[in-house]
Design a protein around this nucleic acid. Structure first.
Lengths: 263, 263
DNA sequence: AGAAAAGGTTCAAATAATGAACCGGTATTT
DNA sequence: AAATACCGGTTCATTATTTGAACCTTTTCT
């Protein structure tokens, strides 16, 4: 693996719940030698991707990332495009709705709207990473990604978040197959207790899934009627979104979805 | 220079006006060998910092940057803090107002509001870089940064944007000295014709300038009264903003500003 | 004051980065 | 239609950077 990838991999460890990381903490997180870590962190800091808390010397994300995401959004206004569809769903279904993109370790929400309150711009609940194997977004993504990607995800350590989390590769593979067949992924309290969610992929130009949109509800509120409402809205939104992104929905999935919407 | 810094330096070349860059174009921009470039670009792509236009094979910024800036803003809500002050000024002065942070090649606006219309979130006019030596933001930043930084900026090629742009190091040094003495930087059509602007630094915990806030007006509208209004608003906003960021305004500057506001 | 832990530095050994030359596809010119 | 130019991408021996165990310094805790 190149030095560049190793260094950029360090940035993945930052999240809303872990906004600052010290040198030694990095060592325990990554297992990399302190000397190497220090050189990488210093390089990232020199470029503005990190900055240091003067008091604790811990590292946090730096100002350079602000500009990059602004340029990215000007180049490919994905967040803006996604926003309107998520808002529509949340307003009609009155449940937490979000869109997410794949990163190395899981799905990263780019926009979310609560069923009742205001939308939260860029970043889901906590700018947190949603693990692939334990969330509907993750399973939906894997179901419509290349085999190589699925394999690399499943070869990593699979954490257990609730009693219902599957950590067995065969079980997860079955979930993925199921989502591929149904055209929608579901997660029944596999990441957070008392939360049920549904997710579908959306597609970009490449024909592979670009990201997912999902609805999460309290388990107590879910019934077959709400389930159908959620899934219908997700499918319709993905069809529109994929069109806006000049994406190609795989033919067999397009068929599956069309049949679901008819019934 | 480390490989990491070389690779991340490539990302600096992207902007709203140059959103996609091909391999050969990168070669002419940077002078780096094609083989090396290709390896660096591929590494950045593998990490999600770049993605490729399938049709042209040109590179553009990737989805990974979206999450980073979300986490950064959750960690240090700088944009959010800056927003309210910029909005206040723009609403009261009715002129284009913005805040910017330093990057390697110039100031990068993080929020701007037109005197009349809506605010534009993250990114100024064009998510563009404002050169240090030719803008009021740049001069204000240099006037309150360390000597090493100023030296490194002035040792690079200094572009000429209008007839009024200073490209001579001594002239620019004089501008910087002047801004340091007055506590405010001004630029009279040195970057864009018919535009006059004023800028002041704001301060973070470190005691060095963290960024700048600035007002730009059409040259035709500027008179001594508007000038005083602009500068007073900028100084007051920077005092408040620096306080919110638990920043330290250098004592001599605090004095200079206090005197200006009295008169 | 002493111990422990954290951040940071050093330098020989190991490894990855480099770049000139090369390959293959596509668009343009003759 | 053949020749040419251009572009993205690849190869591999040479070269330079990265690596990590040990060491040093500063801060924090007892």
């Amino acid at each position: 693996m190149s030095t560049i990838e190793k260094a950029l991999g360090l940035l993945e460890h930052f999240s809303a719940s872990r906004p600052e990381i010290g040198l030694t903490e990095f060592k325990t997180l990554t297992g990399v030698d302190k000397g190497t870590l220090h050189r990488h962190l210093t390089a990232l800091r020199n470029c503005g991707y990190l900055e240091q808390n003067h008091a604790t010397r811990a590292y946090r994300l730096g100002p350079a990332v602000i500009r990059l995401s602004a340029v990215r959004e000007k180049t490919v206004p994905l967040v803006k495009t996604v926003e309107s569809y998520i808002n529509q769903i949340a307003d009609q279904v009155h449940e937490l709705t979000h869109a997410a993109l794949p990163e190395k370790k899981g799905m990263s929400a780019i926009y979310a709207k609560d069923g009742g309150s205001h939308g939260t711009r860029v970043s889901f609940d906590e700018a947190e990473i949603l693990p692939f194997h334990a969330t509907s977004s993750g399973i939906a993504m894997l179901a419509f990604s290349g085999d190589a990607f699925v394999k690399s995800v499943l070869s990593k350590r699979l954490g257990r978040y609730t009693d219902a989390t599957s950590t067995d590769i065969d079980e997860i593979t079955a979930l993925i197959e199921n989502a591929r067949t149904l055209g929608v992924a579901s997660a029944n309290q596999t990441y957070e207790a008392e939360v049920i969610s549904f997710a579908v992929p959306f597609f970009g130009h490449s024909g592979e899934a670009m990201g997912t949109i999902a609805i999460a509800t309290p388990a107590s509120r879910m019934d077959s009627e709400l389930e159908k409402t959620c899934i219908d809205h997700l499918i319709a939104a993905s069809q529109n979104l994929s069109r806006d992104l000049s994406g190609k929905i795989p033919p067999h999935l397009a068929d599956t979805w069309a049949k679901r919407l008819e019934s």
